[in-house]
Design a protein around this nucleic acid. Structure first.
Lengths: 260, 260
DNA sequence: CGTTGAATTGACACCGTTCAACGACAGTGG
DNA sequence: CCACTGTCGTTGAACGGTGTCAATTCAACG
C-alpha cells in the first residue's frame, strides 16, 4: 500500500514501526526528499570522513556499509530498500565508514536543514527516526554475535536468512528467494571468510538442499533447514509481533501478525 | 572538572561532544537521574525483551552487552563510566540483548517520562543523546570489522587498545594501563575465541612485551607496539579532533587536542 | 591448610587460508 | 560467426591457526 502512496519513502520501517506513523508524518517524510538519483555500479555514495549536510533514503536496490583497513575491505552492513541509509549522518555529520552502491540503485536525498526543521516540530517522528538508527545498531550486534560464534556455513546461512527476511518485510523477495547484486567476494567480506571458502561453503549449502547461489539470485531451497542451520531468530529486527509489542511509541496497536 | 560538578553524569561524552553541551544542558542531564544504585557481581541489569520505562547511566565500574544463543554467551559491547548504557531503550522500549554487571558498579536511573519531557523541550540535547547512541553503533561496526579481519592476538590487542583509549577519554586509566573486572573467559567471549586460546595469545602478547594481563588489571608494556599490532585507529570513537571536527552540533568550537 | 575458581600447558584434529590452476560465461571487436 | 578478453566461479593441495579435551599449576580466601 504505502509504497504506492509514498513512492520514495513508502518502505521506510515497513513491517516495523511504520504503522505507528500517522498519515501526516508519512507525508512529511515523503516531502523531505528534495531530489532523487539513479546510480549504478560499484561506487561510493558517501566516503568516510566526508562532511554531510544531507541524508539518503534508499528507494530501490541494495547498498553496503564498508570499512577499508590496510587495503582490505570489510562489509559491516547491508542495506535494502526503505532503509534511511545514512540518517545517522544527521547527528554525526561525518561518518566513520563508507556507503557503497552495488548494482543499480535509486536514492532520495534529504537535506539536513529541512530535516532539522521538521524534527524540532515533531518529537514523535524524531523518536521514530531515532528508532530506525537503533535498528541498524541491533543488526550490528547480531552480526558481531554471528561472526564470533558461527562457522563459515552458518554465517553465510544467517546472512542469507536475514536479508531474505528483511526484503520480505518491505514486500520484496519471495518465498522462493531474492535477487541480489552480491558476488562471492562480497559474501566473503560480509562473513569474514576467504572467497575460496565462500565457494566451498556455498557448494555445501547447495548440496544439503538449503540454498542456491547463482549470479544475481539467491534461491531458498528449504526455508526450514535454513532457519535451523543459521539459528536465525528475527526478533532483533524488531518486526511487528517481536520484542516491540507494546512499544510506547505505538501503544497497543501492534498486534498484527509479523511479516510472513 | 565536570565529574566534580556533576558527580553522576559528568563523564557523559567527555572527550567527545560534551563541550557542545551548555551548562544548562549539563545540569538538566544531571537532574534527570532520579535514583542511584550500587551493584555488584555478575548479574543482569536488564534482560533481553524486558519492558523498560527507564534508562541507565553508568557512573562507576564496567558493564557488558551480551547475547545468549543456544546456551553460549556472546559479548557484543563493553561499557565504561559515562556511558548512557541503555539510552536506546528510550526509543526501543525493549532491548534485543542483555546488560550485565561485572565487578562493582554504580548506576543512575533516568525515568523515560522525565526524559521525554526534557527532550521535547530541548532539540539540541536530543540530538546529542541521539549522537551518543550512534557512537555505540560505530563501535559495533569496528568490532564487526575486527572480528572479520583479525586473528586472535590482533583482536585481543584491538579490544585492549580501545578500552584503554575510552577510559582515558573519561579521565580513567593511566598510561601504564587500567583496571578491569574481566577474566580470560570474558575476553574469549568478546573476541570470539576459545578461553584456552585467549590464554595462549595473552602469553604471546606478554612475551612480545606489549601487554600484560593479570587478574583485575591490564598493564600496557609498550603502547606503540600495541597500536601497531592492533592497527587501532581511534577515529571511529569520534573523539575531539577526530572525524567530528566541525560538527554542526558544535560549530567551530572543537579544535581542542584529542584526549591524550 | 584445604578449597575453589582461574590460569596455564600439551597433544591432536580440523576448519579455513593461501597459492595455484582451470573452467564457465558474457561482452567485444574483427 | 568466431576469437579474444576479463570477470567470476570452481577445484586441489599444503600449511597453519584455533578448538577441544584433559591434566596441572597458581592465587585468593576462609
Amino acid at each position: 500500500m504505502s509504497c504506492h502512496d509514498y513512492p520514495m519513502t513508502g518502505r521506510f520501517l515497513q513491517g516495523r514501526l511504520r504503522h505507528a506513523m500517522t498519515d501526516r508524518e508519512q507525508a512529511l517524510l515523503e516531502g523531505l526528499v528534495a531530489e532523487t538519483a539513479e546510480l549504478q555500479g560499484e561506487s561510493l555514495l558517501i566516503e568516510r570522513g566526508q562532511f554531510c549536510d544531507f541524508s539518503t533514503m534508499l528507494i530501490e536496490g541494495h547498498m553496503l556499509r564498508t570499512i577499508h583497513e590496510n587495503g582490505r575491505r570489510s562489509i559491516v552492513g547491508y542495506q535494502v530498500p526503505g532503509d534511511f541509509v545514512d540518517l545517522h549522518a544527521f547527528a554525526l555529520k561525518r561518518l566513520d565508514h563508507d556507503l557503497m552502491i552495488i548494482g543499480k540503485a535509486k536514492v532520495g536525498y534529504v537535506p539536513h536543514e529541512r530535516l532539522r526543521e521538521v524534527l524540532e516540530q515533531e518529537p514523535h517522528l524524531a523518536r521514530i527516526f531515532w528508532f530506525s538508527t537503533l535498528l541498524d545498531a541491533s543488526i550490528h550486534r547480531e552480526w558481531i554475535m554471528k561472526t564470533q560464534q558461527m562457522r563459515a556455513m552458518g554465517r553465510l546461512a544467517h546472512f542469507i536468512a536475514e536479508i531474505w527476511y528483511r526484503l520480505r518485510m518491505v514486500d520484496l523477495g519471495r518465498s522462493s528467494g531474492f535477487q541480489t547484486p552480491l558476488n562471492q567476494v562480497h559474501l566473503g567480506q560480509i562473513c569474514g571468510i576467504s572467497t575460496v571458502h565462500v565457494n566451498r561453503s556455498l557448494r555445501d549449502l547447495r548440496q544439503a538442499g538449503i540454498v542456491e547461489f547463482r549470479r544475481g539470485r539467491i534461491t531458498i531451497l528449504d526455508g526450514e533447514k535454513l532457519k535451523k542451520l543459521s539459528r536465525f531468530e528475527p526478533s532483533y529486527l524488531y518486526g511487528e509481533g517481536g520484542l516491540n509489542v507494546g512499544n510506547a511509541l505505538d501503544k497497543g496497536a501492534s498486534e498484527k501478525a509479523a511479516a510472513q
